[in-house]
Amino acid sequence: MKKMISGVVIAIAGMSGMTQVAQAAEPEVRTATVAPCSTASKDEIAALVKRDFLQNRIPRWDADKKTLGTSTPVAWVAPDSIGGDNAKWTIPLKVRGDHTDKTYQVTLNCQLGEISYSTPV
């Protein structure tokens, strides 16, 4: 009887570990809502993306903080590199950390109020 109970406890502990691994492997959410921005200029779009990344995204993205080597990276957008129009913008966001520099491709749908970030490259 003791061996059977011991085996059940080990099986439950193993299943618990598998659940934790599965949860850890889930990708971080890379899409969020933002205020509508259909009348924004490219300079305003650049500022919006930079502010959103630094205030709302990087604090939540542990893998990115680890890759960059900091929770307070330097981020910038060159307004002349922004493509698209007032409905949908594509923005290359450059980020510098202690370990490396990365670029995120950001899509900003001003009509829907949605921002999406690629994984950094």
Rank of each mutant, 00 (worst) to 15 (best):
S38V: 09
T39H: 10
S71L: 02
A87S: 13
K94E: 14
A63Y: 06
G17T: 03
I58P: 09
S16E: 00
I115Y: 11
V8P: 00
S81T: 14
I5W: 07
I82D: 07
V77H: 06
G113C: 03
I12G: 00
A47H: 03
M1T: 04
S116I: 03
Y117I: 07
E114Q: 15
D85K: 01
L68Y: 00
R96H: 04
A24T: 05
R51Y: 08
T90G: 10
V21E: 05
P92D: 10
M15R: 00
M15S: 04
I45C: 09
A78M: 03
A24W: 13
K88W: 01
S16L: 10
K102A: 14
I115V: 15
V121S: 15
T70W: 04
L68C: 00
T119R: 13
L112P: 01
L54V: 02
G7Y: 00
W89P: 05
L54K: 03
H99K: 15
L108P: 12
G113I: 05
P27T: 05
A25M: 13
L54W: 02
L68D: 01
A40Y: 14
W76R: 12
Q105W: 02
T107L: 02
K94G: 04
A40W: 07
L54G: 05
S116R: 14
S118N: 10
Y117W: 14
D52F: 15
E26D: 09
P59Y: 03
L112R: 14
R60K: 14
K2S: 04
C110M: 06
Q55R: 04
R51D: 15
R60W: 03
I10E: 03
K3S: 02
I12K: 00
Q111I: 10
Q111P: 01
